[in-house]
């Protein structure tokens, strides 16, 4: 039985916490009940990034650029690309990878963004509250005088940090693999103009940030799903299932009327940062849409979570 269900809580404002949870809470990691929000945030971060599941996810993401890099290297035999490197069906920027390793960053992000990255985010976001609920640790978290809203914000901030971390893992791994396997140097933008390697790196960083921001929509969606159920696995499956559904809907031409409102629709717009001059229209639309999803599903999660009976 949780604190909130205790009928006599009204008479005992100072004694809201049932003795039992408090005792059990003392057995939980000490960092879990730090009152200052930064402390709560820090402990959430530590818990998330120390989890074996998170590390495996990041490891898989780091392996993708290695795979792509080795495949391109074997295919081109180390020399400059011969023939059409990437057909119309190949991933973006693939044709340029063998000529400039920096393009591996863009290719790797283009390969992982449609599925791997959002799936990882969906797992972490779906698990955020439902996982705690399933493990029976959620009510101990609420015992800390942080408030539900703050806990939710902390959870969302943690998932956002994971979005950034996952993207940077892909980008850094791709940068390393690209530097090892392929030549570096000045690069040619997709508009045909030439930019220096330093500016190329800067654009790669900018692209990584935009990709991370592209994932904040599904992070909020996952967090909302996470407030609906008490089972972590159900929340993860539902989030990833939603992602796949939306990706499929985005492929159906007859539904083009709703496409601009699907959170995945403008994801590939990060490539517009490689144009010269940068074409901002789709980028701005993408970031705006992500902010809208974050606002709608974030507040829906708040509406649900703040009013929810926490029984576990």
């Amino acid at each position: 039985m949780s604190r909130a269900d205790t009928p006599d809580a009204a008479e005992r404002p100072g004694a809201q916490r049932d003795p039992a949870p408090v005792t059990a809470g003392a057995g939980a990691p000490a960092g879990r009940r730090l009152p200052p929000s930064l402390g709560l945030f820090r402990s959430e971060l530590l818990i998330t990034f120390r989890r074996g599941r998170t590390l495996v996810l990041l490891g898989v993401l780091a392996a993708v650029p290695v795979l792509v890099g080795i495949a391109v290297r074997i295919e081109t035999g180390g020399g400059p690309s011969r023939g059409p490197g990437g057909g119309p069906g190949g991933p973006a920027f693939l044709a340029q990878v063998s000529n400039n390793g920096l393009f591996l960053v863009f290719t790797a992000l283009a390969v992982t963004l449609p599925f791997f990255l959002p799936m990882a985010v969906g797992v972490v976001a779906g698990d955020a509250l439902a996982g705690e609920s399933a493990a029976g640790t959620l009510r101990y978290l609420l015992v800390a005088p942080a408030g539900r809203t703050r806990l939710l914000l902390t959870k969302y901030a943690t998932v956002t940090v994971f979005c950034l971390a996952a993207t940077l893992v892909v980008a850094v791994s791709a940068l390393a693999v690209g530097a090892l396997l392929f030549p570096l140097g000045d690069l040619v933008t997709i508009s045909g103009t030439r930019i220096g390697y330093g500016e190329g790196l800067l654009r790669a960083l900018l692209i990584a940030l935009v990709v991370a921001a592209s994932l904040t929509g599904i992070a909020a969606l996952g967090l909302f799903v996470s407030t609906l159920t008490g089972s972590g696995i159900a929340a993860m499956a539902a989030t990833v299932g939603l992602l796949i559904t939306v990706q499929i809907l985005d492929q159906i031409p007859q539904l083009h009327a709703i496409h601009p409102y699907l959170f995945t629709h403008h994801w590939m717009s990060f490539a517009d940062l490689m144009r010269e001059p940068v074409y901002w229209d789709a980028l701005v639309r993408n970031l705006g849409l992500q902010a809208l999803y974050a606002a709608v599903f974030g507040s829906a999660a708040w509406a649900r979570f703040a009013a929810k009976d926490i029984t576990a």
Partner: peptide
């Protein structure tokens, strides 16, 4: 319980 919880600065119900 609403009043109480709000007063305690805990969960705003």
């Amino acid at each position: 319980s609403t009043t109480t919880a709000a007063a305690a600065g805990d969960v705003r119900e």
